[in-house]
């Protein structure tokens, strides 16, 4: 489990690099979007090894909520406020 988590962490570090170095705002947005999906992988691996379904609850909330954050960022990128 630790080995798999370390590979995922490596991926997360790549995303962090893109957040830090990304020349434009959309690059950073992509990075946080990808990170949100990677978190689901984390939860899945934990669930696989412990056999508890409470980790899947966290995974579902990541899958649903990371989407909302990304949509908000995307709408902001278009230069519009959130309510129009």
């Amino acid at each position: 489990m630790v080995f798999f988590s370390i590979i995922l962490l490596l991926c997360a570090f790549f995303c962090l690099f893109r957040v830090g170095a990304g020349p434009t705002p959309p690059d950073r947005t992509v990075a946080i979007d990808i990170l949100g999906i990677l978190m689901v992988s984390f939860c899945a691996i934990l669930s696989l090894y412990t056999g508890k379904d409470l980790y899947m609850n966290v995974a579902i909330s990541w899958a649903l909520l990371a989407f909302i954050g990304t949509i908000a960022l995307a709408k902001y990128l278009e230069g519009r406020t959130f309510d129009e």
Binding site: A12, L16, V19, R28, A31, L35, F42, L46, V58
Partner: peptide, 20 residues
């Protein structure tokens, strides 16, 4: 915007840390 997004990244990593 980069600051805001990295604050979000820190929050995500913290969530996983809490899970572990």
């Amino acid at each position: 915007l980069a600051s805001v997004i990295s604050a979000g990244v820190v929050g995500m990593a913290l969530s996983i840390l809490f899970l572990f």
